[in-house]
Structures are given as C-alpha cells and as structure tokens.
Amino acid sequence: METKLLEVKNLKTHFNTERGRVTAVDGVFFTVHAGETVGVVGESGCGKSVTAESILRLLDEKSTEYEGEILYKGKNLLTSTINEMQAVRGNDISMIFQDPMSSLNPVYTVGNQIVESIMLHQNVNKKEAYEKAIEMLRLTGIPSPEKRIHEYPHELSGGMRQRVMIAMALSCQPKLLIADEPTTALDVTTQSQILDLINELKVKFNMGTVMITHDLGVVAEVCTKVVVMYLGQVIEESDVRSLFSSPYHPYTDGLLKSIPQLTGDRSKKLHVIEGKVPTLHQVPKGCRFAPRCAFANEKCHDEMPELVQADTSRKVRCWHYKEIFQAGEESPYVSAADSY
C-alpha cells in the first residue's frame, strides 16, 4: 500500500537580496511515497538545492519567504512553529549534504556528532546512544566501527565521511531522506558503493527518498520517478523509464542528447542547447525555456505554460509538447538499449 509521505504543492521560495527580490523556486510540485525514490534533476542554479532546503526550512528565515504548501503526512511544514520543525528535522525527515568534507564538525569525533543527534530525538542514555551509533556505522559498511567512532572527520576519507553522514542521517530511522548531491564529490567507484548503500537502506527502512542530482546517470540507476527543473520551475515530471525513452519537454530532450554516451556510436557530434540559462534577475516573461527552445513561437514568449497532466504518470510544462512529441525522432536511448 502506498502511503503519501510528502507532497510539495506550488512551492515558491523568494529571497530578499540587496538587488531586490528574487524567486529561486517558482512553482515546484511533486509527491513522495514511502519506499519510493524521486529524483530532482537540473543544471546549476535551477533551484533544486533550494527546494531541498525549503522542505526542511533550512534557509535564513529573515530574508526568505515561502509560498505554497509542503505537506508532510498531511501537515503543512511551512506554517509549523520552530519547535515543531525541530522535532521533524533529523527525526522524521533527514538530509545528506553534498560536501562530506565541510558538513561534519572538524573539532568533534564522528561518534560525538552521531550521538548528539540520537540523544536529541530519542529517549536514550549516552551508553545506548553510543551503541546505536556503532550499529549505524556498521550498517553503512564502515570497517571496525568501534574504533572509527572515536576518530575525527579529518582521519577519514571522502567516501567514509559520506558514510558517516548517512549513518547520522539514518540514526533516528527517518521516514523521508533528502539526499542533496550525495555522490557528486566522490569518485565513481566510491559513488557506486554509496548509491548501493542508500538503495539498500531505503528498502530496509521503507524510506521515501528525494535524490537531488545533476547526473542523469545517477537518476537512471536509483530513481523511480523524476522531476526535471529549469530556472526554478518543474518543467517535467515522469516515471524514470518514460522520461529517458520519450522526454516530452524540449529541455529534457536536449539535456539527454547532450550527454556523451558510454555505449553506441561516438563519432557523432554532441547536441548543444544554444544560449545559456538566464539569471534570476531577468526571468523570461513567458515560458522560461523559450529563448533557448527551437520550437518556441510567439505564444511561448508571451504566456507561461502551466504544469499539465500529459498522461497518467506524466506532467509537462510546455505549450507544444504534443506536436513536438509526435513529430520528434526516436530517442537515442531506446535504440542504445536494444543494441547493448
């Protein structure tokens, strides 16, 4: 039975800056069920990390304004009090950050940091908390955790530190895990170890996971559902297979085509999405992708499309997705899979 864990409805995050108000996230929708991994992808500056931070309200409340709703088990986190948020953070919803080098406190042992989070949320004494921390470290595959628990972050390698972060995030058995680029700073062989670990623990605890990443390979490997973001908006939402075999939005299509492949023909030139992402200070009036889109016409430049249900499992924010999709050529991904 699927339980709806998290529902983000038309989330908008505004920052008040010296150069005026910018809206870093402007219309994000998605739902996470228990045991499901939702990927949030996009290029730098598309608002994917701000979305993650908005869910836990980690941004500076003085200069940030939120709009919309973030429902965790039916309760709106955006209207919760600070105390209520503290009870949710780390306990019900946990987060893994991108940089394992800077997200651990260098002057405390890793055991100390994990125990802190356990004792904050669970009614246990220090000894029990230490035992729990050792168990978590063992679960994440750290060899001889009884010894490692007394080490400082600088004594551990990048992959080990990321394991410590995961152990810390999962120490209170959260229902929902938000992983913000958890493997970007790691090497590929370490990355595959960490992705396997997250997958394994997800099944074990029946967690819902939000995987924020820019790497479409990671999405294809671990996610069941994908949300594609461009300039603060969700432009496409789909199950992972359909997205890779037949993307609806021209941006998604362009993004998929511009990655060099590990299989198939390599003599072809790479696809290029012309132009560059506009800054948040000069957001286009109509469709945000229109200035770079080969299919854009006047309507695209004037009116912003809404995120509409395209078919049962898919949503897209484009005026022309039907025509483009019908006229579009076969995606390279289907044929690559056949020939592999």
């Binding site: 390698s157 992959g159 080990m160 590929v188 062989t189 370490t190 990355q191 595959s192 170890q193 992705l195 396997d196 790497d215 479409l216 390979g217 990671v218 999405v219 294809a220 490997e221 992972v240 297979r241 890779f244 075999s245 998929l256 990655i259 492949q261 590990l262 299989t263 991904y333 289907v334 690559a336 899979a337 592999y340």
Partner: peptide
C-alpha cells in the same frame, strides 16, 4: 571495475556491477 561503476543514463540497461572493496 571502473567502467562498470559509471552510472549509465539509461534505465533500460541493467548491468552486472563490480563493486570494489575498500579504499
């Protein structure tokens, strides 16, 4: 091991991954 560890941007392909032990 290195080649098998690269995540492929294609959910249709499931490969046998060689996971290296240790660091």
């Amino acid at each position: 091991a290195l080649l098998s560890a690269v995540p492929l941007p294609n959910p249709m392909i499931k490969r046998e991954r060689i996971t290296l032990k240790g660091e």
